[in-house]
């Protein structure tokens, strides 16, 4: 989408476009949520707790990270800490999104809650600005399937038996692969991805969970190079 296109469309049209673009991610997210519901029950959470967690946390990787620590016998503080580290990338995404959000600070804070990986990536116009209505639309449909998927997994997941046998653990990373492929359009984006991958893998043996992903942000510093600036300005013009 070009910047001019999204500026002339009405908020309603952009919201609906977000809904439409979000559907494939929402369907894939449904499968991820189903897995989450099952894993959360296995870790000792009640079905209600698993569902409420998806409703009010709504951050897949953080929920998985926290539950993994509980399942391994870790403490609540450690679980929250791991979830927070996983979510630290949302801090960067929020910083990126901030200039595109109008209104007073409580209203901006509320709009910032709609950031999830797929929506944030879809709403990026490629010039550093974001289409917030597209973001809201895309997140709405994903919130719906994230909640219902968790409920189904938490209440009926036992019927599936051993979920590892079904390969459900491959769904979550595959979801991010698909996102990455749609994002990595320019050579510079592929370079940032390569640096991010290498940095995070190098840190895995030493750093606590979540930090390797956060540290991968350094890959984005490729954007400081001369040509990237020119490209960003060109896209804005």
């Amino acid at each position: 989408m070009t910047a001019t296109e999204s500026e002339t469309a009405t908020p309603r049209e952009r919201f609906l476009k977000g809904l439409r673009l979000g559907v494939p991610f929402a369907i894939a997210g449904f499968l991820v949520a189903l897995t989450f519901g099952i894993v959360a029950r296995d870790a000792g959470l009640s079905a209600v707790a698993a569902i409420v967690m998806s409703l009010i946390v709504f951050a897949g990787s953080a929920q998985f990270a926290a539950i993994a620590i509980i399942a391994a016998g870790g403490g609540v503080a450690a679980a929250i800490g791991a979830g927070a580290l996983m979510n630290s990338r949302f801090l960067m995404m929020g910083v990126a999104l901030a200039p595109s959000l109008p209104g007073r600070w409580p209203w901006r804070a509320a709009q910032g809650q709609t950031v999830v990986d797929a929506s944030w990536a879809l709403a990026a116009r490629g010039d550093g600005t974001f289409d917030r209505w597209l973001l809201f639309g895309s997140t709405s449909v994903q919130y719906l399937t994230w909640s219902t998927g968790t409920a189904l997994g938490a209440l009926g997941g036992g019927a599936l038996g051993d979920t590892d046998k079904l390969g459900l653990d491959a769904i979550y990373p595959a979801f991010f692969v698909a996102l990455l492929i749609s994002e990595a359009r320019s050579g510079r984006a592929r370079g940032a991805a390569a640096i991010g991958a290498v940095v995070s893998l190098a840190l895995v043996p030493f750093a606590p969970a979540g930090i390797p992903v956060l540290a991968a942000s350094v890959g984005a510093l490729l954007g400081l190079t001369q040509r990237a600036r020119a490209e960003a300005q060109e896209a804005r013009a």
């Binding site: 510079r188 991958a197 992903v213 804005r236």
Partner: peptide
């Protein structure tokens, strides 16, 4: 982010970095 930086125009240099955050973070998650 939205509370601290909302509504401000950021320098082009900063936007160049932001536009590459998604591929870097997604690759790390994968």
């Amino acid at each position: 982010g939205p509370i601290v930086l909302g509504g401000r125009e950021l320098p082009a240099q900063f936007l160049g970095v932001i536009s590459l955050l998604a591929p870097a973070l997604l690759a790390a998650l994968v």
